[in-house]
Amino acid sequence: MDEPVIETHALTKRYGRGRPAVDGLGLVVPRGSVFGFLGPNGSGKTTTIRMLMGLIEPTSGVARVLGEPMPRAGQRVLPRVGALIEGPALYGFLSGRDNLVRLDSADPAADPRTRAARVGEALDRVGLANAAAKKARAYSLGMKQRLGLAAALLQPRELLVLDEPTNGLDPQGMREIRTLVRDLAAGGTTVFLSSHLLDEIEQVCTHVAVMSRGRLLTQGTVAGLASSVRGRLSVTTPDTAEAVRVLKEHGVNDLVVTDDRVTGELPAGELADLNAALVRADVRVRAFGAQRASLEDAFVALTGEGFDVAG
């Protein structure tokens, strides 16, 4: 097996006193995965990314990126990593192009003779070529986000770390990011993507880790996580009251009615028998079946609560 691209062991960070922002994190990001790092606001996603990128020192524990310890091996590791951390930050008085030139100059492994070409390619890649000469302070939020991405793509990277990359983007922009992530992953880049948007993770990620209040709740493949949560039985019918009565008789628990839909815990037995029972009781069934669990269901099942900001 390949060595993981990111591996942490009991990684902990405490800012000042109080509850640790990240607490005993053991993360394993396999090579080639699109890894979703999911958690509500304040759950420690950015703090983890800061430790992985060597911006802050862990209070305890170890973080290894591309097989080397961080922050110690930063100068060897970081040229192979592209990162967007907590949104873009630009020099407003420089043009988009000069912003990239500056960041490229900061990389001691970047050849100055090919700098202009690299910057041009990165701008093309995120669709900013036409706005490259404009001062960055005149950029819209989406354009800034794209420029930040372009900086992460200046070099071919083994790992791309994106902290909430779709923040502030319109649906079109979000779609473009998803396409870009899929392209990069197809090219062999491992993508580590933090988000508090469940469906975003569900759409692009192969793997997922779920954080809450600084702790890792679970990690694994997206499919595995969703299947670990049992789906629900769903019946669509105009006769909801009658349906509830029949289902209850047949031992279905936790029945919930929303408009013309009744959902409940998936029973152990044969589903077809239930359907037959409904029809025998003259319940007009429009749709009947087991609903696949979503990542959101999984999250609620894991936390036993909603997707809220930890206090």
């Binding site: 911006l55 970081l78 040229p79 930050a89 001691p108």
Partner: peptide, 12 residues
């Protein structure tokens, strides 16, 4: 300006 973190991950 927040640009310090990007210079550091460049890595300067």
């Amino acid at each position: 300006a927040g640009t310090l973190r990007y210079l550091l991950v460049a890595p300067a």
